[in-house]
Amino acid sequence: MALLSMRGVHVVVDTAEGPRTLVRLSELELAEGEMLGLVGETGSGKTLTGLAVTRVFPTPSIRLQGGSIELGGRDLAGLGERELLAVRGREVGVVFQDPNASLNPVFPVGRPLMDLLGLHRSLRGQAAVAEAVRLFQRVELPDAAALLSRYPHELSGGQRQRVMIAMAIAAGPKLLVADEPTTALDVTVQAELLRLLDDLRREAGMSVLFITHNLGVVAHMVERVAIMYAGDVVETGPTRAVLKEPRHPYTRLLLEAVPRQGQGRLKAIAGTAVPRSEIAQGCAFASRCPFAQDRCRAIEPALEGPGVHRAACLRQEEVLHV
């Protein structure tokens, strides 16, 4: 059964010329205990899709316009701000990309964690300290007890991100939204952090929405992936199937754009991404797509395909067999 089910989620930004669509998501589902890779490039709407679950957007001018976001059978999109407070942190934990910007430099790193334990689990005093130490140990931070009173600048980037993970899982959420958690880190540190995330997921039966632009990480970390382009999912399915036999031209081109040793010219994707709001009709990728035909510019494709591997492309069979 799906833990998270997002349908028709519509995120807009208010501008002087009126609201502009940033995300118009057909559907996205996440099973209990599953780690789903949400992949996309800058401006694809992958981060906003993740943030829509808790409705904490980077600026007040970005807001949820419509759609349903069901978490464990309850529609979060219908909840008010007060009710959402109980969801944030408690049912849904979030880890952001930049561990430097996420921690307040004037407080020791243990302080916000203990605040959270007080807020969500009513733990105070010695009980909170003990639990905080346990959580720090769980995210494999060395010397956990001493680290509680350290300041963010005394920690390395990888350690800070571990602190952020400890905070995100402090209340035992059912869902963890991890927004590019390792992008700011070195590769050798990234590997350890990814393994930790996967361990935590298995252990707690937690679902993880893993947002990333890194196809390599996705290939080895998640069972299922959803590729986003211009605010919507264009292809979804088991990771292996999507990466080995892509049905959407965008996925295909994205994979071919990854540089490798001894390879000649890279197959770059022509042009730049057109924002959702500027596409009147048809497929959002049509203007850059080598497979595009007239009908692609007229009909907006829906996610379809054989079984669980689906793509939003009218010519997916041709794409698959080229």
């Binding site: 590769v187 050798t188 990234q190 590997a191 350890e192 393994r195 890194n214 196809l215 390599g216 990480v217 996705v218 290939a219 080895h220 970390m221 990771t239 292996r240 990466l243 080995k244 994979l255 990854v258």
Partner: peptide, 16 residues
Amino acid sequence: ALPDPDPDRPWRPETL
């Protein structure tokens, strides 16, 4: 430590 987008290529990062 570098994961390849090809799921068939093994990825065995060492812990430093």
